[in-house]
């Protein structure tokens, strides 16, 4: 490792804990709201540091299954209609990528209630 401890994740965690313990409790209104946003942002960064490396590999593998190397190629093929014949397959792979993004951005979202038939 090129760096000493704490790791990047541990550094971010330490700032998040300080925001939770000291800043959130000693502020009100707008500043408190923005502290809460900051805590959420740092928690997101911690999750990305934990899951991100594997997610990059998985994302690349999914793209490769469709014959692409990046999102731009896939997006442009969908747009031009080239993927119409494989639409359901594309939907399933893109949905898997979205679930990975949510696992970092907001893991609780997938568990939220829904009533779509």
């Amino acid at each position: 490792m090129p760096h000493d401890l704490p790791s990047a994740a541990q550094l971010v965690e330490s700032v998040r804990e300080w925001l939770e313990k000291d800043v959130l409790t000693s502020t009100t209104g707008r500043v408190q709201f923005h502290s809460r946003v900051a805590i959420n942002v740092l928690a997101m960064v911690e999750r990305e540091l934990r899951l991100g490396v594997q997610q990059v590999v998985d994302h690349r593998e999914r793209l490769a299954l469709l014959g692409f190397t990046n999102d731009a190629e896939l997006a442009s093929a969908i747009r031009s209609g080239d993927m119409d014949e494989r639409f359901q397959e594309v939907v399933d792979l893109v949905r898997a990528s979205v679930l990975d993004k949510l696992a970092v951005a907001n893991p609780a979202y997938v568990a939220a209630p829904t009533s779509n038939e």
């Binding site: 999102d71 896939l74 209609g81 594309v90």
Partner: peptide, 16 residues
């Protein structure tokens, strides 16, 4: 400098 496959899927579905 980004692209969004999900949004392209949705636009395609909306068109069709």
């Amino acid at each position: 400098g980004q692209s969004h496959p999900t949004f392209e899927l949705a636009f395609r579905w909306l068109e069709r």
